[in-house]
């Protein structure tokens, strides 16, 4: 098991806007090596915008994005992906009309043999091995999410960012998936999990950030996120 280490992703004083509408205000987030960070908040809190900025799909209007101690604000998303910053978007991001095996092949990181990728994916998710010739679109929601995770791992990531992984899945399936996420982090991969459903992810997260209206309302140990913090962010209560 890998201990939590040096910062891999640091968002410093990030502000962002969509045209004239400001959506993030002075957001500071640090994800360390081997850490699972839960980024929580209600709809419209700015969580997905944080993800877009961290993965270079969007440029902040202010602040910097540091990766492994280097300021990479303005880097191309494709370059970050090539280095090992992997984003799994909401909606899974798989190719439904390709088979499980073909989906894994499509995600192969340069230099990593397809056989190695399959071996890793099937060892972690044995059900995918049974369904390797099945079209991805015909898998169950949980299996599609497993494939999505396996595709992410095929890129040999150092930082894995997951957007709303639990969406549309049964709680038991979500629990299994988050166990896998915890195992991935234990191997030293930094994981940023964006979730609307706080309870699901707080059980496995090391740290948590709670956002509402583009502001960070709480940042600290996941165990310290209490009802009052969540109510304040989600319901606007004091």
């Amino acid at each position: 098991m890998s201990a939590i280490g040096e910062p891999i992703l640091e968002l410093k004083n990030i502000s962002a806007s969509y045209d004239a509408i400001s959506v993030l205000h002075d957001v500071n987030i640090t994800v360390r090596r081997g850490e699972v960070m839960a980024l929580l908040g209600p709809n419209g809190a700015g969580k997905s915008t944080v993800l877009k900025i961290a993965s270079a799909l969007m440029r902040p209007t202010q602040g910097s994005v540091n990766i492994a101690g280097h300021d990479l604000t303005g880097a191309a998303a494709s370059e970050l992906a090539r280095l090992g910053v992997c984003t799994i978007p909401e909606g899974r991001g798989i190719f439904p009309n390709l088979t499980v095996r073909e989906n894994l092949e499509m995600a192969a990181r340069k230099g990593l043999a397809v056989s190695v990728i399959q071996e890793r994916a099937f060892a972690r998710f044995p059900i995918l091995a049974e369904r390797r010739t099945q079209l991805a679109g015909t898998l169950s929601g949980g299996q599609q999410q497993m494939l999505s995770l396996a595709r992410g791992l095929a890129t040999d990531p150092v930082l894995l960012m997951l957007d709303e992984m639990s969406m549309g899945l049964a709680p038991i399936v979500v629990g299994d998936l988050y166990e896998q996420v915890q195992a991935i982090a234990a191997e030293g991969v930094s994981v940023l999990v964006i979730e609307q459903f706080a309870r699901t992810v707080l059980g496995i997260a090391d740290t948590a950030v709670v956002m509402s209206h583009g502001h960070v309302r709480f940042s600290g140990n996941a165990r310290d996120v209490d009802e009052a913090t969540l109510s304040s962010a989600y319901l606007g209560t004091k």
């Binding site: 990766i67 990479l72 604000t73 303005g74 880097a75 040999d156 150092v158 991969v189």
Partner: peptide, 20 residues
């Protein structure tokens, strides 16, 4: 993930040239 991968990642990040 081993130390080698982290070292490789850190080196590649340091070498990354930011283009406009």
């Amino acid at each position: 993930m081993n130390e080698e991968r982290i070292t490789q990642f850190t080196e590649e990040v340091a070498e990354l040239k930011l283009r406009g």
